[in-house]
Design a protein around this nucleic acid. Structure first.
Lengths: 116, 116
DNA sequence: TGTAAATATTTACATCTGTCGATGTTTAAG
DNA sequence: CTTAAACATCGACAGATGTAAATATTTACA
């Protein structure tokens, strides 16, 4: 098994922001998730996938939702995937992305968790 | 009264990510908050202030927590302040920043909210 | 085998961002 | 009025980031 933490583990590791100061290493584990969501196209992609029926969507649908080139959408999906926010599954010629709701929930708990 | 939305209003405006697709304008209102938190120094600053007693901290304390120049810390605090995540208050020579927990809670609800 | 469609990768480039040194501003104390 | 301390702003620069054109890869199907 790997010694690297998955992003979901990284964000589940710590108590909420308001509870105690985040360590440097904790912060660097969480920041990739926030950076991934900190772009308007990626935030909408995440929302599109997460709110799609079955919690997944085909890239072919996502491309049409933006006036951006196909490589650009592919790039943004890769960022979200590498952050651990989207799962990838290939079926035939099509690729489906699925939202990691557990990652979203852990991140939300970290941000919004009460002080005590 | 201003026609501009405050960041807190911007993030309180929409249903959760997983509920329905975020519009372009909604996304652009929320992204500044995520970008502000998407830097390890700023995330730790936010956590330091939010977890400090009384929910506020003096810049003098924050400077000492990092091996960064004073202008750099000042810059990061400004970003968090302009995103609506920190309030500023000057008392004498000292400046105190206070965490906007309502903004954090709204953002968390947006990210982690259940689909239905 | 050959062709077309869906998606990813590579490369290049303009813009954005984090950082620091130098300097400015504000407040309190002599 | 000076001086010192706390903090902000300015200017500059290296490195990161979003975008698209060109190209590669994978899969289905004739």
């Amino acid at each position: 098994m790997s010694l690297e933490l998955t992003p979901v583990q990284a964000v589940a590791c710590c108590s909420p922001l308001s509870r105690e100061p985040l360590s440097e290493s904790e912060a660097e584990g969480i920041v990739p998730l926030l950076k991934a969501l900190g772009d308007p196209v990626r935030l909408r992609l995440m929302s599109l996938v997460a709110s799609h029926e079955g919690g997944e969507a085909c890239v072919c649908d996502l491309n049409d939702a933006f006036e951006l080139s196909q490589p650009t959408i592919s790039h943004h999906l890769k960022v979200l995937h590498e952050a651990g926010l989207l799962e990838r599954e290939k079926r035939g010629v099509w690729v489906y992305y699925r939202a990691r709701t557990d990652a979203l929930e852990n991140l939300a708990a970290l941000i919004g968790g009460k002080s005590r």
